[in-house]
Write a protein that binds this DNA or RNA. Structure first.
Lengths: 140, 140
DNA sequence: ATGATAAATGTAACGATTACAAATGTGGAG
DNA sequence: CTCCACATTTGTAATCGTTACATTTATCAT
């Protein structure tokens, strides 16, 4: 499967050489805009790149994170997910079906308690039931 | 070291038998009110309970979480921390010294995008520099 | 072509967590 | 008090995501 989003310039701008693997990985994220795990990325790209290694996926993603092109997501307990959308937004995970959804938000941090601190990064994630799973639960 | 907070009733109320180990672990959390890792909890309690096993620490903490007595914290990438304070609040971690600080907050989630969802749990964590580390950076 | 450098690959190691079986503790019936 | 059933604890081994590292492959200027 080919994801026709050209991210070459994006990589060059950030001093990352646009290798074949890096282009595939980043354009996969840019096209899908889901929040995949390394496992998912690897499994979907290995058809295109039979020699692909998971290490390469890890290496590339860590490069992207350092360059600010991608944000890691720790909504799972022990598996990192990766988000192409680096803007401030929250994530909701359905504890029934596992779907992850973006949502917009406004965080009001009590300034008194945080004066003197320099906040560089905010993360918000919620858990609960999505509408579909709520429906299904009613039926049973 | 003995932490003189009696959490026996708290355990009984939640149908958890107040064994020696469980009492020690929960009262450690209640007394310290820091955000320790399993490693930290184990290291501090093993002096009191020489036969203590890490598995017991994990088992007890997972029991506490299921009962809602303790909240897990995924502010670290790959190591869970545990919080005795289960009320809604945010966590700040200094990326220099690693200190974790609680702060109060108000989250305004855009209701339009989340209508139909049932949100059971909200988590907020921020990263940046604490005042002390900001001071030290200026000096250098 | 050739050689220097960067990137990709595969395997092994690591660290947090869990599975599991054996040992220990607890509490009630006789 | 003793015995037995059951829960808890313990230690070891397994699991799984991630990283370290050495080897192979690709890139690119000379």
């Amino acid at each position: 499967m080919i994801y026709d989003i050209d991210v070459t310039e994006e990589l060059i701008k950030n001093n990352i050489k646009p290798s074949y693997q890096r282009l595939k990985i980043l354009s996969y994220l840019a096209f899908k805009r889901n929040h995949p795990t390394v496992e998912q990325i690897f499994n979907e790209l290995v058809d295109d790149i039979p020699t692909l290694s998971k290490t390469t996926v890890y290496n590339s993603l860590n490069l992207f994170i350092q360059a600010g092109l991608v944000k890691p997501l720790n909504i799972e307990d022990h598996e990192t997910r990766y988000d192409y959308d680096t803007s401030d937004h929250g994530h909701f995970k359905c504890i029934e079906c596992g779907t992850i959804k973006d949502f917009s938000l406004k965080i009001d941090i009590d300034n008194d308690s945080m004066s003197g601190y320099e906040i560089l990064e905010k993360n918000v994630y919620c858990k609960g039931y999505c509408p579909r799973c709520l429906e299904n639960k009613k039926k049973i």
